[in-house]
């Protein structure tokens, strides 16, 4: 298992207790649904149907409303993510400097398409919106770390670097 989150191993009661504590923390704040979901996703890595249903029940809103929010914002995901999330910036500056070529190479070498996770659970490949690091275009992030001034030839080393960290 490459996934670092404890979604699989954690007991249901513990999971729900954590969600309760988050809801409690935001109870005074008006319109806090997005920060609540954000905090839960940060802990579990994604928002499963079970988690969404529990939040709906606790907050007293229909599940459809929660799902409406989760599916609207790109930040939320309903699928487990890989240990390393590679997000290739597809902003204009990166695009004109060849981000598309880097992305194609990543798809080829990882054997997955954008939005998918490798079978070993190591990498999730994403195309993302402008990261605002246009001075270093083309850029991508691996989890929080930014890599800039990339070319197609850097892809092999980049993947190797993170595989070796295992």
């Amino acid at each position: 298992m490459g996934c670092q989150c404890q979604c699989g191993s954690e007991k249901k009661e513990d999971k729900f207790a954590f969600i309760d504590s988050i809801i409690e923390r935001y109870k005074e704040q008006r319109g806090a649904m997005i920060p609540i979901l954000h905090s839960i996703q940060q802990k579990f890595g994604y928002l499963s149907e079970e988690v969404q249903a529990y939040v709906a029940e606790k907050m007293g809103v229909p599940l459809s409303e929660i799902y409406g929010i989760v599916s609207f914002y790109a930040l939320f995901t309903t699928q487990p993510q890989g240990k390393y999330k590679i997000s290739v910036c597809m902003g204009t500056a990166c695009y004109v400097r060849g981000a598309g070529i880097v992305l194609d190479e990543l798809e080829k070498q990882l054997g997955v398409r954008v939005g998918e996770t490798t079978k070993d659970g190591m990498f999730t490949l994403e195309a993302c919106r402008c990261l605002g690091a246009c001075g270093l275009a083309p850029v991508l992030t691996v989890n929080e770390h930014v890599h800039g001034r990339l070319t197609k030839d850097d892809v092999t080393d980049l993947i190797k670097k993170y595989r070796d960290e295992q």
């Binding site: 597809m90 902003g91 204009t92 500056a93 695009y95 919106r129 402008c130 605002g132 690091a133 246009c134």
Partner: peptide, 10 residues
């Protein structure tokens, strides 16, 4: 700040 290529706000 959502316009791709703009990062002055950041």
């Amino acid at each position: 700040e959502g316009d791709p290529g703009a990062f002055m706000d950041r």
